[in-house]
């Protein structure tokens, strides 16, 4: 069985809130989360944010419920594009593990599906979609291994948004037939998050089948993360990385605790 992931947790300015959101995600059973930084294209010369170093966020990452492993945190950038000039692949995009684009027009949606080097295409959850999903770009995206993302937390916050979220999700899923869909939270606060099984159930009302719906929070997300990793490589075949310096001194071998005998005065006999 694959682990659960939530690939959209909004990075706010409030560090404590982000921390508690990630802690809640770990408690709910998500093994991997991605902190989402958004760039609005229409604002002129908006700088692409640099991701906050993860070591600053937590000293020890919270343990995932039922897994006894620490949660894995990724960085993700979402480019909101209303014009073709907004999406420019620059070096700054390479600081992020995942790259998403939120196309606002039909033309950009087509370009995002067919050409853009991204991992995720976001579907609007806060407004009615201004264009129809056409079969050819959607199929193109599926063939290239790009995934569509539905975020649900706007629907939890506001009843009107709930309607838009469901409408857009149903429209998308009827076109892509349940393939290449991920469902993520987009949460800003811990209470906007829901458990992975709740989301697998929520997928059913979007029109996904039971299997697709569970894949939308587990295996499909894994494909997105792997796609994100191969994006920085040459055709996914060659990957270069700096080798870490080998330590010159071998660290002393630790003796397992069971082999240490304890004497009465508390000193250890090895």
């Amino acid at each position: 069985m694959s682990v659960f992931m939530d690939l959209n947790i909004t990075a706010g300015t409030d560090k404590a809130k982000l921390q508690s959101t990630i802690e809640t995600a770990a408690h709910l059973g998500y093994s991997t989360v991605a902190i989402n930084y958004v760039v609005e294209g229409q604002k002129k010369k908006q700088l692409i944010p640099t991701p906050q170093p993860l070591a600053e966020l937590f000293e020890t990452f919270p343990t995932v419920q039922g897994k006894s492993r620490p949660i894995k945190v990724l960085n993700r950038l979402t480019v909101v594009a209303t014009d073709a000039s907004h999406f420019r692949p620059t070096n700054e995009y390479k600081n992020f593990d995942l790259l998403a684009v939120h196309p606002k027009t039909d033309k950009l949606f087509h370009a995002a599906c067919m050409n853009y080097d991204v991992d995720i295409i976001c579907i609007s959850a806060t407004e009615p979609q201004s264009f129809h999903f056409k079969r050819s770009p959607v199929n193109g995206a599926i063939e290239r291994g790009v995934f569509f993302e539905i975020s649900y937390s706007a629907g939890i916050r506001d009843p009107t948004m709930k309607k838009y979220t469901i409408t857009n999700a149903v429209n998308l899923i009827s076109v892509c037939k349940g393939k290449n869909v991920i469902v993520a939270s987009g949460a800003e606060a811990p209470l906007n998050l829901r458990g992975p099984y709740d989301i697998a159930n929520l997928g059913l009302i979007f029109g996904l089948s039971e299997g697709d719906s569970k894949a939308a929070v587990s295996t499909n997300c894994r494909s997105v993360v792997l796609h994100g990793e191969t994006r920085g490589t040459a055709l996914g075949i060659i990957h270069t990385m700096k080798r870490p310096q080998l330590p010159t001194e071998q660290p002393e071998e630790e003796i397992p605790a069971a082999k240490k005998a304890k004497t009465d005065d508390g000193s250890l006999i090895v």
Binding site: I156, P190, D198, N201, L202, I205
Partner: peptide, 26 residues
């Protein structure tokens, strides 16, 4: 079950205080 569960999932506030249902077991 599916309808009740999805309705519970999408409840986000009670008397305009934000809240959440955590489904422990089904």
């Amino acid at each position: 079950l599916v309808k009740l569960w999805s309705a519970i999932t999408l409840i986000g506030s009670y008397e305009s205080v934000s809240c959440a249902f955590r489904v422990t077991q089904v």
